[in-house]
Structure formats: structure tokens, C-alpha cells
Nucleic acid binder design. Sequence first.
DNA 1: CTCAACAAGTGCAACCGTTTCACTTTTGAA
DNA 2: TTCAAAAGTGAAACGGTTGCACTTGTTGAG
Lengths: 213, 213
Amino acid sequence: MIDLMPETQPSAEAPPMGRRERKKAATRQAIADAALRLFLERGYDDVGIREIADEADVSTTTLFKHFPVKEALVFDEEADQEALLLAAVHDRPKGRSIPAALREHALRYRMAATGSDARFTAFFELIDTTPALRDYVQAMWLRHTEALAHAIAEECGLPEDDPGCTALAHFALEAPRAARGHDDPRRAVERAFDLLEHGWQPDPPKRTRPGGR
Amino acid sequence: MIDLMPETQPSAEAPPMGRRERKKAATRQAIADAALRLFLERGYDDVGIREIADEADVSTTTLFKHFPVKEALVFDEEADQEALLLAAVHDRPKGRSIPAALREHALRYRMAATGSDARFTAFFELIDTTPALRDYVQAMWLRHTEALAHAIAEECGLPEDDPGCTALAHFALEAPRAARGHDDPRRAVERAFDLLEHGWQPDPPKRTRPGGR
DNA sequence: CTCAACAAGTGCAACCGTTTCACTTTTGAA
DNA sequence: TTCAAAAGTGAAACGGTTGCACTTGTTGAG
């Protein structure tokens, strides 16, 4: 329900899952769907774990095997989104700079939410009005920032806590976030990344050319 | 126990508290002391709320009247520190720029921890090794950043979500944090603020001079 | 001084997210 | 077929947190 990821590239990732993995995924999806539906109906705090499990027809034990904490039920696509983000850097067409790859990724995947689809609106309102969820997205954002910084550093052959990489990662995730609320979010993101691509020069390490591998 | 705030200015704030407020403060302190002692002895996760309350000789109800969540027991001075931070901006000597005031504050109050006092070391190790506390400090840092940004904006007569103010607040709190781990943290902070003071020019609003009030 | 009003503290039971445990059922592969 | 690992179960417990009805101490106005 509410697929935040538009149109995965047709040719991409389809390692044919066996029955087992398919069933597992189905269970997971059933849980997430039930949870989101109930949350939207009655509010995050007024829906208990046990009730969600019942609705999805699984035990609470099973529920927690799939989602480590209650908040994670709302962001069941987090892992996929992070993977996509890191892939955008790691698998970018050769010759393309990292900022450029991040810009493309931002425009492609992180702007879906800005459409005027009513379900998106409700989804974001749910988050914005629930302190527990606000806190969770904040922590999530940080996790992604760190993962991205790490990936960039690795890509450039820099130490994994290189401040420049941290800053770039920070910026690349902050830009789309700040763009929400602008009249033309797409344009805002473009602007931010224009700035970034001109300003950011990866500090070339000893003998690796920036962007090379 | 473990007073993070060295030497409050002698003349500052001493609105003579009545017996009531004094007792309340004492209770609060007893709870925080008991909690920190037990945490350091046995680890954060291995000490329960009920046990802390017992040790401080209060009911758990009372404990939660003073500290909204378990993590807050570790940061019982948070409110004071935030107040001090905001005061550093608001009550700075006239003519002094905001960045300069923040630099002085950072050097004065936020570097206490870098001393080689064994209790500080243990305190920070407790935090660093407890995920729940790491998460909490992160959220705390964000709250303080937002409060500071708000205070700066108000001080300059700018809209309360002015990006420049947000950035300045962010930087001013990030600098001392990043300095931890440097060989000479004090110097690192000085450097960071040197940069900041030269770089940052508050966008003068309609008719207010920057730094004026 | 007295007394009402209010703030602080109490004890207990409940709530709810989360974990543990011992157990059954499915599934993939040897 | 056989077997081990993976997925799921059910119930009970744990621990942080809250609600409730209550007592006690402090304060300030009359």
C-alpha cells in the first residue's frame, strides 16, 4: 500500500524467489498493509501491536520478526530505499560524477511524494502529527546519511569518515528534504545540486582519480 | 554528581527559592544521583526504573514527574545547559557578534568534558556504549539546534526558520562536538569559530544592523 | 492564625511494546 | 526420503510508562 518507489527499472533485480521467500515477503507485506491502514484510520498511537498482528492474521512474535520496532511498520520500504540510494552512487554510469548521480536519484525517487496524491498527503500528515514517527524519521535520516557517506568514501578511496564525504552525503539528503514545501520542489532540488556540483571537488587521494574506481 | 557546568557566574540567577522548590530540587537531584551511580556501576540497561526509585527513596510515579523518560535521568542538566546556551546569545555584551558569543560559550562551557577527569571519561563511555543513550543525545542535539536557531533568528529580527540562522546554529553546536577526539580540542574549536566569524554575515533585515538589537 | 488551594509525593494496578521460550509447520536441498 | 534450517505460533513475562485515587506538606489570602 502506498508504493513510494515508482517504476523500478524493468531490467533490474529480479532474482527469481522461491516459494519460501515469496511467502515471507507476502507475510511482511500483509503486516505492513494492515498496520498502515489501521494507522491512517485511527492514528498511530491508538492502534496496538496485538491488533495489527490480528488484522494481518499473524502472531505478534512473527510481526516482530519482520519489524524490529513499531515505528518500522510505517517505513517498510526503508531498506529498499537505502539500497537504491547506495546503488545510485555505486552503479552510476562510468564518467558520471557522484553529485550528478545523486541529483538524478533525488529527482527520480525522492520527489514522488510531492505529487498531489491524497494517499501521500495522508501518509505524510500521519508522520508529521506523530512525535514518535517524527523522531524515527530523524534517526532514519541520520542512518542513511552515514551509510551514504560511507559508500561515497569507499567509492573515492577516502577514509570512511572523511569530512568531505560526510558533508556531501548530508547535503544530498538535506536538499530534497528542504525542497518539500517549496512551490516548485523539483526546481529547488535542481538549484541545490547545481550549486553542489560546481562547488564540490573530491579531494583526490594519493593515486586514485576522483570518480574512478 | 558530575557537575558539567563549571562555576556559574557568581552574580547570576539566585532567585531565593522557598522551601518547597528547594525540596523539589533536592528530590530531583537525589533521583539523578542514584540513577547515575547505578548506571555507572552496572550499565544502563541492567538498572530498572523501579530500582532507581527505591534507591532514591521515592515512588516511580514521582520519578516520572521529574524525568519524562528513562534516558533523561542521565542528562538531568539538559534544561540548564540549553538555557545557558540561549542566554549566551540573548544576553551577550552589546556590540559582540553572535558567533563571537557562541565561541566564548563553547570554550567556556562545552569543553569541560575534555579534561582527563576519570568521572567524565566513565560518563561519556556510558553514553557511547549504550545505543538508547546515543539516540537520545542525537535527538537532544537536534532540539538544542532548533532552539538556538530560533533564538538567533529572533535576535536578528529574521523569520524563525531562516536558513542562515539554522546553519549558524547547526555549525555552532557541531564544532565543539567535532572537536572531541582532536588532540587539541580547544584549538580545533577556535579554528572552527575563526572561520565562522569571518564567513558569516547576517543578512541584514529591512532596518536592523547585524548584531545590533 | 486559619484554612482553602495547590503542588509534591504515594502505592497500586494496568497498559503496551518487546522479548523469551519451547514448540509446530513448512520448505529447500542432499 | 530425510533432515536441518527457516518461518511461524502461543503464552507468559519483563520493563518502561501512565492513570487513578489518595495523603501530606507548603503557600498565600483573608
